[in-house]
Write a protein that binds this DNA or RNA. Structure first.
Length: 701
DNA sequence: TTAAGCTTTCTTTTT
DNA sequence: GAAAGCTTAA
């Protein structure tokens, strides 16, 4: 009788997990919410990050942690919406762990796409030196495609280049047909859809012929490359261990598809997307936060995290921000939890009209400065650029230095584009748009002659070379001298010495190429513009390759923002900015001006489906930029487009707020005694006897 | 066909 | 403040 064998339990001895030691003290430098994201395990992950919750910080630490845990930087793909954001993040990671991460595939969707497309361009019918068309280039090419097809634009109204570009762009980015885009954005042109489609087709052909891609092509061609060439996609999948996407709420359908494609061949699908649905403000460019809301469905097993602790603003500001966004139906529920102590109330100020608004803001800014707040800690935000005009005048009058972050960007100005057209043509001789732009600068040469010349040379492998050899005797007499000079300039620019020095090439075009003469006749402020061009040359100085310089210029935007001419870091300047451009930034004191119904929310934007909700998100973005003080200003009268002074109602974003969320300021006229004392300005306060603009004061509520 | 001069218009615009 | 659109002149 044998004893029954005792049950066996297997027990595995494990080597003590070595306490992982990191160079960065993650536990100390992050809060609980952030730490969880930073240490989130492999697999698809979504992070909903409220305003001011340390979203960038969390991403930076996540990247650091991945690198510290052994992921080589070149195996990371970090997609952002601005190059500035990408640069900022890589810089901060490097500062944190003291390691070079420049090998990472980091940048905007467009710049990463351009980088990936160049080596494989031949697979798509392009040459690796393809040009990149900016919005204006596309517009011109579309207009020329329209006239190509002899569409009788005069008989029946036909969409202009700008609208065509917008429609095309929306259809590409939303993954919809052109017909759907026309139906939703410009239904009155629906009857001409066949012609519009023909123009689109022609435009597409012309781009390939010109060896040029517009912004949308960068994305859609990358999509094609990844879909049609699995070997390319798989090689990329092997290379990329983690994809991280910032501002995912502003991603469009096409961009979301690209992210999905990058993850497709990876078994673990290490995709982390970070965003805030309440800050989605780019639907007019095709952004759709459906990508964010629907992410969990596309990635089963996704982990979701939320960052709701706000480090930026006072509780007063956050309460107002939360109350406002709660009026939106379509959103993720979330509440911003303040960490800061009580501050001053949010101020709501009605001014008699727009000039008084400017006067009030300028005066308050001077007071804040006297209280010790640096001008660089103050910003004035507005819905539309033109709303800043009066303020600009008032600030200039009072000698308050400011910097404008809206309106035309440096590289989009005519004179800059004119000169760059020469360089583009030297790099890519098939670039039709640049050829026409450059040749039209000559006296007596307009659209007609430019088109004739291009037609004569465009079939050639090197149209510029053919153009240089063309017999000019048949050209109109008046244009002949100019054409000769033009050919001289082009010949010179094709020399290797200029190909390796964009700065010299720019100076050559301006000085020897005669552009300074052109500028003098073309622009009333030619001196300033020529100074700009010298600044452009300075900016180009570090580059030793014209092609590379051009790509960065078209894709990287504004040099005035940062790393331009060193030493002019003048931080004693107030910032004026559109709300869109203020996203991601913060100031101690923020003035939000022009809060009248129909201006903000913008009447036109409200006509779009969900337009009002997007406007409210824009309002949310604006108010959450403020750290300490928020002032909301609404003029009670403004000039309408016919130049008549009309009464304007306060914005519904103000009227819908409960009255206990802000303090109402009423402006008083200056005391009659005229004195020259420094503070000889109207007193401000909660006077219960408004003496200004008697007919105003509809209660905000 | 080009150019000059006037009027009109301006939502936002990471690429 | 700047660019686009329109009309008229050359």
């Amino acid at each position: 009788m044998a004893d029954p064998a005792p049950p066996v339990k297997r027990y595995v001895l494990r080597t003590a997990a070595p306490a992982r030691s990191y160079r960065v003290d993650y536990a100390r430098e992050l809060n609980e919410e952030q730490r969880e994201v930073v240490f989130a395990p492999e697999g698809p992950t979504i992070v909903i990050a409220g305003a001011g919750s340390g979203k960038t910080r969390t991403l930076v630490y996540r990247v650091s942690r991945l690198v510290e845990d052994g992921t080589p930087p070149q195996r990371l793909c970090l997609l952002t919406f601005t190059n500035r954001a990408a640069r900022e993040m890589t810089r901060r990671v490097e500062a944190l762990i003291g390691e070079d991460v420049s090998g990472a595939l980091a940048g905007t969707f467009h710049s990463v796409a351009a980088r990936l497309l160049r080596p494989s361009a031949e697979l798509l019918g392009y040459r690796p030196n393809f040009s990149i068309l900016d919005g204006e280039d596309s517009k011109e090419l579309l207009e020329s495609a329209t006239s190509d097809l002899n569409i009788p634009v005069a008989e029946r109204r036909f969409p202009k280049g700008d609208l065509l570009r917008e429609l095309l762009s929306l259809s590409v980015n939303r993954g919809r047909s052109l017909g759907e885009a026309v139906a939703s954005e410009a239904p009155h042109f629906l009857s001409q859809l066949p012609a519009i489609e023909a123009v689109a087709k022609r435009y597409g052909e012309r781009k390939v012929r010109a060896n040029a891609m517009d912004y949308d092509d960068l994305l859609s061609n990358l999509k094609r490359l990844l879909e049609e060439h699995p070997e390319v996609r798989q090689a990329l999948a092997r290379r990329i261990a983690h994809v991280l996407v910032d501002e995912y709420q502003d991603v469009n359908h096409l961009q979301a598809q690209l992210v999905d494609l990058l993850a497709r061949d990876s078994p673990v699908r290490n995709v982390m997307v970070v965003g805030d649905d309440a800050q989605s403000i780019y639907s007019f460019r095709g952004a759709d936060f459906e990508a964010l809301l629907g992410f969990p469905d596309r990635y089963p097993g996704v982990r979701m995290y939320r960052l709701e602790t706000n480090y930026r603003s006072t509780p007063e500001i956050l309460r107002l921000a939360d109350a406002s966004i709660a009026f939106n139906a379509r959103r993720f529920e979330k509440t911003l939890r303040p960490t800061r102590g009580a501050g001053v109330p949010v101020a709501v100020v009605g001014t008699a009209d727009v000039p008084q608004q400017a006067q009030f803001v300028a005066q308050r800014i001077l007071e804040l400065r006297d209280e010790g707040l640096a001008l660089s800690e103050i910003a004035v935000l507005y819905r539309a650029h033109y709303q800043s005009l009066e303020l600009q005048m008032e600030l200039t009058r009072r000698g308050i230095p400011f910097e404008i972050r809206s309106g035309l960007r440096f590289f989009e100005q005519q004179h800059v584009k004119d000169v760059l057209a020469f360089l583009k043509l030297a790099v890519n001789p098939k670039d039709e748009t640049s050829f026409k732009r450059a040749i039209k600068l000559l006296p007596k040469v307009g659209e007609r002659i430019a088109a004739t010349f291009w037609l004569a040379v465009s079939e050639a492998a090197d149209p510029v070379e053919t153009f240089l050899a063309l017999d000019l005797s048949k050209a109109p007499a008046g244009a002949r001298a100019g054409l000769k000079g033009f050919r001289g300039t082009l010949t010179a620019l094709r020399k290797a010495s200029y190909a390796s020095s964009p700065a010299e090439a720019i100076r050559f075009v301006v000085e020897d190429g005669g552009y300074s003469e052109v500028a003098k006749t073309k622009f009333p402020n030619s001196t300033a513009r020529l100074d700009d061009l010298e600044a452009l040359a300075q900016f180009a100085l570090p580059y030793d390759d014209v092609g590379k310089f051009l790509q960065e210029v078209t894709l990287f935007g504004d040099p005035a923002g940062e790393d331009t001419v060193a030493g002019e870091k003048d931080d004693e300047r107030l910032v004026l900015s559109s709300v869109h451009q203020a996203k991601g930034l913060e100031w101690r004191a923020v003035f939000l001006v022009g809060l009248s119904e129909d201006r903000f929310p913008n009447a036109r934007a409200c006509r779009a489906p969900e337009g009002l909700e997007e406007e409210r998100r824009l309002f949310h973005v604006a108010v959450t930029r403020a750290k300490d003080e928020l002032t909301l200003v609404h003029p009670l009268a403004a000039y309408d487009r016919t130049g008549i002074l009309v009464m304007t109602e306060p914005s519904r974003f103000l009227r819908e707020l409960p009255g206990d969320l802000y303090e109402r300021w009423v402006l008083e006229a200056p005391p009659p005694a005229p004195s020259l004392s420094g503070s000889g300005a109207p007193a401000l306060g909660e006077a219960d006897d408004p003496t200004l603009s008697g007919e105003d004061d509809e209660p905000v509520n």
